[in-house]
Amino acid sequence: MGAVDKKSVLVVVRRSPYGSSLARASLDVALAAAAFEQPLRLLFMGDGVLQLLAKQESEAIGVKNIGRLLTSLPLYDIERVYVDAAAATRYGIDLSNAPVTTQALDGPGIHQLMTDCDHVLGF
């Protein structure tokens, strides 16, 4: 990669974990950006907060476990992980038991986060 610049990237995850292949693809993009040492932030929004459910057992449907992948984010130095607080409440997600530590944001907080990043990749 011939990157000279570093641009801050926000990956917005809006897919439920096992409803479409884009759920996994968005996380793969995040991991790739981290592997190339790009400043990366991750935001779980809307249906995407379902990825934060504890004790996912996807093996029964023959799909890789997204919850387990999320536990590995700190190993890739992805530590700025945010969640849409209203969506988490709506879906009854227990963030204290989520596979990854997140910072909950309200509407204005999400707006500010998107404004702060050079690129927003929405999935």
């Binding site: 011939g2 993009v29 592997a35 990749l121």
Partner: peptide, 21 residues
């Protein structure tokens, strides 16, 4: 090619526009 090409595109573009999904 690999996802590194997308990361590179982010780093070297002023605007990255997503279509679909």
């Amino acid at each position: 090619s690999g996802l590194g090409q997308l990361v590179d595109a982010c780093a070297n573009s002023d605007r990255l526009i997503t279509f679909g999904g």
